[in-house]
Design a protein around this nucleic acid. Structure first.
Length: 451
DNA sequence: TCTGGGGTCCTAGGACCC
DNA sequence: TCTGGGGTCCTAGGACCC
């Protein structure tokens, strides 16, 4: 593609300057809950209020911070920081284990409140959402008034604070909600997008992380305004497709990829995975394969819930020194059966694990989903049906009595050993273990389940 | 400071086909 | 013997987000 041929840019779905195809200015809200995990924990334990709180695990554990209270942030603690680092920076902080069920529950409450303002709601993660409020002025009044009403209703219904950003694109809404934090509302008037963005650090643009930031800094580009002054063709030459999107973003446009989707468009999951990091590295084959069995089961269970059949199975293997490999295999016939997924995973593991090498993390990922597997011969399919029935029954038991109540015989041997000394919390009667954190809540809440 | 878990999207090379 | 290009699928790795 010629660099100057901008007609090929991916801007057809949303024309520049926030106009819809029919010519109206789009009004997008981005609603972001303030310190979501911490705030939910405070509702369960009010004594945490106003204190330095770190959610994600205990101070001496292998792991990272999921969320930190504003009090803890004053000491430099932020999410994704190792727990042990956080403990050093903020010795008096209170460390709290995460409770994903609680967050999912509150996420659904949030979703319900948002649904009373617009039919086009899209949960972008467990604690943030986009709303298309285009054309709702008659019903809800002008954007700022509406946003304040939303803010109040959210507080009344969930006892949680949020921040709201309003703009003519997802990008502007998202960036402005971040500027509005905490507990604020910010409206970027149509036409003022570039002016609003110009003084911000390039890092404020969603999609610009550590690496891109340092590339840009090397070019002397620090602020979004610097970026906007550059020629699109130069950005494209240097950074390819991404550079082109970046040029659009610097002017406030939803250029390319997911950003161009209509708000609320139904996006099917592309992959389902589970992984586990050991508290202590191990080279014990039994323990390793038992973990792979357990991860395969967890993944397959979710495949069945979603009625997906996976064609591609991927093993993730991280050694003591943090070097990480992934090895994938694509099946001729898609599946959602524990035994078949595990068989592939175990083959990949045996072929690629360097025997005796200490392992830090194992992961199982499935992707390339199909609705139904191609039908194979009759004998094979009745055999599979029996497995399916058995697994459905097992899923039900797990719902009733907990994740650890049912085990397939093949996974028994090493599994028991692993569970007893590495993971006592997952024994019957002790509730869900941290290892079984299941962030399905990060996807859009499933209204068919909740209502 | 010693680095979680669940995702998405992009790149790049090789195989294979037309 | 030299010389193609395009398209699609698969795999591995990496940046990024919450």
């Amino acid at each position: 593609m010629a660099a100057a041929d901008h007609s090929a840019l991916p801007q057809s779905a949303v024309p520049p300057s926030g106009l819809t195809r029919t010519g109206f200015v789009r009004t997008i809200f981005h609603v972001d809950m303030d310190a979501f995990f911490v705030s939910v924990e405070e509702l369960y334990d009010p004594s945490l209020k106003g204190k330095a709180v770190v959610v994600g695990g205990q101070r001496d554990e292998r792991g990272v911070v999921s969320a930190a209270s504003y009090e803890a942030r004053k000491f430099g603690v932020h999410s994704a920081m190792p727990l042990r680092t956080a403990a050093k920076m903020c010795a008096h902080a209170i460390f709290v284990n995460g409770h994903p069920e609680r967050y999912r529950e509150f996420s659904e409450k949030v979703y319900k409140v948002l649904g009373t303002f617009s039919p086009q709601v899209e949960m972008a993660s467990i604690d943030e959402a986009y709303l298309d409020m285009t054309g709702t002025e008659r019903l809800h009044g002008p954007p700022l008034k509406c946003a304040h009403a939303l803010h109040e209703r959210m507080k009344a219904e969930t006892r949680l604070n949020c921040s709201v950003g309003i703009g003519t694109s997802r990008l502007i809404a998202k960036v402005s909600s971040a500027q509005a934090k905490p507990n604020g509302v910010l409206y970027i008037v149509p036409g003022q997008e570039a002016k609003f963005l110009a003084p911000l650090d390039v890092r404020e643009i969603p999609g610009v992380g550590k690496v891109m930031e340092s590339h840009l800094h090397a070019l002397g580009i620090k602020k979004v305004g610097d970026l906007a002054r550059l020629e699109e063709s130069e950005l494209e030459d240097r950074f390819g497709k991404w550079g082109l999107a970046l040029a659009g973003k610097s002017r406030g446009q939803d250029a390319g990829g997911w950003f161009d989707n209509e708000v609320g468009a139904d996006l099917d999951a592309k992959s389902i995975s589970h992984e586990h990091t050991y508290n202590e590295d191990t080279a014990d084959v039994n323990q390793l394969e038992a973990t792979l069995m357990r991860l395969s089961e967890m993944v397959c269970r979710r495949l069945r819930e979603a009625n997906f059949y996976a064609r591609t199975v991927q093993l993730k293997l991280r050694y003591k020194d943090f070097t990480t490999i992934t090895r994938a295999h694509t099946l001729t016939s898609p599946t959602q059966l524990d035994t078949e997924i595990f068989e592939q995973i175990r083959m990949l593991f045996r072929k690629n694990w360097k025997k005796g090498m200490q392992v830090r993390l194992l992961g199982v990922q499935t992707s390339h989903f199909a609705e139904q597997p191609e039908q194979i011969n009759l004998l094979e399919s009745t055999r599979q049906q029996r497995w399916k029935d058995a697994l459905a029954a097992a899923d039900k038991l797990r719902d009733k009595y907990g994740e650890s109540s049912v085990k397939l015989a093949a996974g028994m041997r090493g599994t028991f050993r692993e569970r007893t000394h590495e993971n006592p919390a997952s024994l019957p009667g002790k509730g869900k273990s941290k290892a079984e954190w299941d962030k399905t809540g990060s996807a859009k809440p499933d209204s068919s389940k909740s209502g």
